[in-house]
Design a protein around this nucleic acid. Structure first.
Length: 204
DNA sequence: TGGTATCTACCCAGACAGAC
DNA sequence: GTCTGTCTGGGTAGATACCA
């Protein structure tokens, strides 16, 4: 035997059992009467207004509409897990996209872009920061892999994938982001690579 | 050939600030 | 106080390539 009740704010129908618990509830979105188990619960035990499938649809829509946030978050997280600098922000990601203007920051190709580390995080030296993240084409990203930019430039895999002017512009941008001159930044990258390699050898 | 590394895309649970 | 929308944090799967 149930008693019927309406929630205070959304006026949804709830069926209360003999021990005073919500047994069934009408979903706010699909308006179907469903068992309490089909509703997500808050930490205090209350049921959400929308049922699991409706809530799932809502979450999925939210994630799709906030891809940038997820991208920034996942890159920060990876750097954090590796104990590397991880202070990249949404504003900096927006600046980076504005700078790239839809073009790969290495090949200059106008395609769908992916976020890549100028010096790979696997080098365990530079992390997810404004001065180390770039937007590149999937092709460049895959070809570059774990190589540093110097290794990539010298490798055969970079054949036809590097636009010299574009790369120069990118290095200028990253140098500025790191508050350095072009040459200072190149020296810094070389030093970072050297230290990363020594670090790798030491732990081998 | 399996493990590892680079990503994107998607799913899910729960916390929290602010509106009502 | 209740409830919602937003946000954070954790996870998995799949594509591709390299390396031991």
């Amino acid at each position: 035997m149930y008693t019927m009740k309406r929630t205070n704010k959304t006026k949804q129908i709830e069926l209360i059992n003999e021990v005073g618990e919500v047994a069934h509830k009408v979903c706010k979105v699909c308006e179907r009467l469903k068992p309490a188990e089909e509703f997500p619960v808050y930490s205090d035990g209350r049921l959400r207004a929308s049922c699991q499938p409706c809530y799932k649809k809502y979450k999925s829509k939210y994630d799709k509409g906030n891809k940038d946030k997820r991208t920034v978050y996942s890159h920060k997280k990876r750097a954090e897990e590796l104990g590397l600098p991880d202070n990249f922000t949404m504003e900096e990601y927006s600046e980076l996209k504005a700078f790239a203007a839809g073009r790969c920051m290495i090949s200059g190709e106008k395609v769908k872009l992916q976020v890549d580390h100028f010096q790979a995080v696997s080098k365990s030296w530079l992390g997810s920061t404004k001065g180390n993240l770039i937007l590149v084409s999937p092709e460049v990203n895959l070809a570059k892999g774990t190589m540093s930019i110097f290794e990539f430039v010298q490798s055969e895999r970079s054949n036809s994938l590097i636009d010299k002017d574009q790369l120069e512009k990118t290095i200028h941008y990253l140098a500025q982001a790191n508050e350095m001159s072009f040459t200072e930044y190149v020296d810094f990258l070389r030093l970072a690579e050297e230290l990363a390699n020594k670090n790798k050898e030491y732990w081998r």
